[in-house]
Write a protein that binds this DNA or RNA. Structure first.
Ligand code: FES
Ligand code: FES
Lengths: 144, 144
DNA sequence: TTAATAAAAGACATAAATGTCTTTTATTGA
DNA sequence: TCAATAAAAGACATTTATGTCTTTTATTAA
């Protein structure tokens, strides 16, 4: 469904968000531990998320990553996915034709249309707040 | 969504199926042309589909690939996908956790569940017959 | 029975995704 | 001002997916 990069990116963002209630910044080492991901690789992905205004970062002593409390309702899964993997998951032809359109449909176009719409709708309407609550409460998990 | 292999595999199978009404076998060269795919690579994928009883093949003069008419209703997109990519698209955790379960859900488990179910249902209930009709009639396309 | 044919099989090549390491830059607190 | 810290940046390494080429095997028709 998503690339590894995207999976790590979502997991990292949710973890960082789950800590934002106490305004704590968190370092890449702890993030990688908590989501069980390769540290250096995850760091690269976080750079993209920072550039896309999804998470904030600060360098130096007491630096780290954080999500702004006011962003919890604004940021959706869709924004994270698009930042890392692009919009191909929703828009691409399911059979790999160069462009997916009603004018030149592949044999599964009508069927895939709904699945892709559902996925897009779900991602666009799922906020960071919603998915980070479970982590804070301990009812959902980010590793194993 | 699917791997390139799987995309080519589905397209090839649909094309072969669209010809099965006149019991014509078709060679790899023509298949690759009609679905605009790399010929040698596509040949490899077709080997897998033959092994999985999705298409038939015969070697030598007047040999080629075909789909049995009686298989048109039996074969579903799901079978093709599983043969090539496995069942990870339906079963894997959307965030890459090692196993997706109600007992140890990731933060998007409840949301993804429905999307994955819908996809699985669609693929399991879409027959080769259904998707090859459009190709025969010329209302759907396998390339560009 | 042989030559032509076409898929199967396997070795090899290339590109893309994933992952690691080192150096640089910015920040902070002593 | 300086040393310590941590992210950013960039070069590099490894693995996986994608794609190609050659040889082998099976089939057919002459
Ligand atoms: S053309 Fe293939 S999904 Fe739209
Ligand atoms: S545990 Fe992640 S989708 Fe089920």
């Amino acid at each position: 469904m998503f690339s590894k990069s995207c999976e790590y990116g979502i997991r990292a963002t949710i973890f960082i968000a789950s800590l934002c209630y106490n305004d704590t910044k968190v370092g890449i080492k702890e993030i990688a531990q908590e989501i069980d991901s390769p540290m250096a690789f995850t760091a690269k992905i976080l750079q993209v998320l920072v550039k896309n205004d999804i998470i904030k970062s600060s360098k130096g002593v007491r630096g780290g990553f954080m999500v702004l409390k006011e962003d919890l309702k604004r940021i959706t899964l869709s924004q994270i996915v698009v930042a890392i993997d692009g919009d191909s998951v929703f828009l691409r032809c399911g059979l790999g034709l160069s462009n997916c359109s009603e004018d030149h449909p592949c044999p599964v176009h009508e069927k895939f249309k709904f699945v892709k719409q559902d996925l897009a709708f779900m991602l666009e309407n799922t906020t960071l707040e919603e998915v980070s609550i479970g982590i804070k409460k301990g009812t959902t998990f980010l590793k194993y």
